[in-house]
Design a protein around this nucleic acid. Structure first.
Lengths: 210, 210
DNA sequence: TGCCGAATCAAACGTTTGTTTTAATCGAGG
DNA sequence: CCTCGATTAAAACAAACGTTTGATTCGGCA
């Protein structure tokens, strides 16, 4: 990946984060990257492919790390299923800390969070290419951890987890709903929140069905 | 509000939900409403104003109900602050049930969820006009319920609550990340999840600072 | 019926969009 | 020095966009 391509991707992260996929224009992206208007189509083929490559560029290393951490934790736990909080931690912490360490990742997070609400075909392709495997892996691990709950309840828990992450990724500075705006979630509280929420659902179910 | 305006708003809900604000076109909206291309500008002035009125149309009754329920609960509680779970319930349940009762509200929810990630000026106007008062009210009530926590922690809790709601609103049928797709969250589990998450953050803070 | 404002309609407006084309420029290898 | 593939540049493309216009139709009241 040469210098122009990297500049284009970083400019794309900025513009897609700020205006969403349809709201961002190739002209603004190339202008920000100080490249020619034709550069996107020359290097990436299309606006959609640029978006896909932007996601892949940041997400693939992140997901590799997540899988490694999960594999380690599962190996150390032996036969015992992991605790929910542990699973959520492994899923969430690398993401949050990538934003803390690299400010550019913040734009990427927001761009991707917004993209996840798209239902165009190119977004489904992103899901299949760089997301599906990781999602399936974590979902299975969570189902194992909540083995006493019916599949439908686990599915709801997982949907809420995903919705929370998707919502958190879209948080921006000077957030509409926040005067006391937070910079970006810290891993500890976010993990506590999500796993606490899931455990509360599980607890409700258990007390209702005991 | 006459018949054409209602048709336009319902078509707008559908198109904005599916494609987002910038991805939806006035031509598609008017076509779906079986109205003329000029109808949006004639009746609402602009695409942005149509979006604003669409939000106001559904959100104002919902927020009125929320405030009524909250006032009642606070009155009955006397001096005692409401429990977190109660506050979240009042905030969330009317929203979820509006979707269960009226399928059209589902489109509205998704359109609004996507709109909340916009930072254009018209979105800030929506916030000021139809959202700010309710948000402030619930935030205060939550701060009262978590009076022993510092303001920054309450702000984080509130940000997560908001992010979860924003993410949940964007859930669609055949959600990318869900094979076993859920139709729409039910109020009970969603309330349990959010309040459980907030209480988990509070619990963490208290054990660390006792 | 005659009238007038409201509503609808087809057509066109000027921009902006993503993309393509064609020529110019660059940089390493023979 | 020349050549050739890779990259950049400027210009143009057709299509789609939100919006406006001006004529036409509609609906209730005098």
């Amino acid at each position: 990946m040469n210098k122009t391509q990297v500049k284009l991707i970083e400019a794309a992260e900025h513009e897609f984060a700020k205006h969403g996929f349809h709201g961002a224009s190739i002209r603004d992206i190339t202008a920000r990257a100080k490249a020619n208007i034709a550069a996107v189509n020359y290097h990436f083929g299309s606006k959609e492919t640029l978006f896909i490559e932007m996601i892949r560029h940041r997400l693939e290393p992140l997901n590799t790390l997540r899988i490694e951490l999960l594999d380690d934790a599962v190996a150390k736990a032996g036969k015992r299923p992991l605790k929910i909080r542990r699973i959520v931690d492994i899923l969430v912490r690398p993401m949050v800390e990538s934003v803390v360490n690299g400010p550019q990742n913040r734009n990427f997070m927001r761009a991707m969070g917004r993209g996840m609400s798209e239902e165009s075909e190119f977004m489904q392709q992103i899901y299949k290419d760089v997301l599906a495997k990781v999602v399936e892996r974590f979902r299975l691990e969570m189902a194992r951890s909540l083995a006493d709950l019916p599949e439908s309840v686990v599915a709801i828990c997982f949907a809420y987890l995903r919705s929370t992450l998707s919502g958190v990724m879209q948080i921006r500075k000077n957030n509409l709903v926040l005067d006391t705006s937070i910079q970006f979630p810290d891993a500890d509280t976010l993990v506590a929140y999500i796993s606490g929420g899931i455990e509360a659902i599980a607890k409700d179910y258990r007390t209702q069905n005991k």
